[in-house]
Amino acid sequence: MNSVVCISHVPDTEARIKVAGKGVDETGLKFIVSPYDEYALEEAIRIKDAKGGDVTVLTFGPDRAAQALRECLARGATKAIHIKGDASTADALGIAKVLAAAIKTVPHDLVFFGKQGVGTDNGLVGPMVAELLGYPQVNVVTKLEVGEGKITVHREIEAAEEIIESSMPAVITAQKGLNEPRYASLKGIMAAKKVPIDTKSVADLGLQDADIFHQRVVMVSLELPPEKSGGRKIDGSDPVAAAKEILKYIREEAKAL
């Protein structure tokens, strides 16, 4: 059983976002492996531990993204591919074309993604890769069982759950709750340093820059929301009086009752 896990390197969720031009100001910004990708990676590592095979981590991004690959290798991925390029100027389909081309170069039964890259919050690339490769997809997955030649997958939908059976290869996008991701061990960190990262360019994959960058969905502007100053504050030491005041707000201002 071989898996490919596609990861993205994103600003830390605790970071305050600053804007520079049409993008995020990366000065002093800490980057992390996108949180949902951690569930994807953990699931792939567990399958490898149970059934053998390789876990290849794959990313499309600038030089700093190599750090994310190292972190994944330290946790238990066995191979790493880095397609270098400024993915922030590519739209989701551009990114999907790059990843799909790279995925084709390695043996795989399952292709994992996080359900969305935290930050861009698109949730598009996984299903687009599935379409480009002609694979079935199961999105927002909270449970995965690998059987003989097929998988049984739990998918989260609005306040409910679907159980889906699929053939392989397939694309899975991971939701929080799929598993409990492990931390890297010191041994893992040391071993990861010895694994070579296979670095390629978009052109190496036989793709044209003109089909990947500044295409289809183009950034016009990036803006911060207006600061909220906070509204009225009341004393709640008399609970019944406070409740009446809240109800008045709900009915008269929010008009929700």
Binding site: G230, K233, G236, P239, A243, I246
Partner: peptide
């Protein structure tokens, strides 16, 4: 949380929530 709240209530949720639930039921 009060920075983004339109109405902020400083108090004990264990007392205020049941009182509010009652008021909502009465109103409905």
């Amino acid at each position: 949380i009060f920075r983004v709240a339109d109405l902020g209530v400083v108090g004990d949720l264990f007392q205020i929530l049941p009182a509010l639930t009652e008021e909502v039921k009465k109103a409905k």
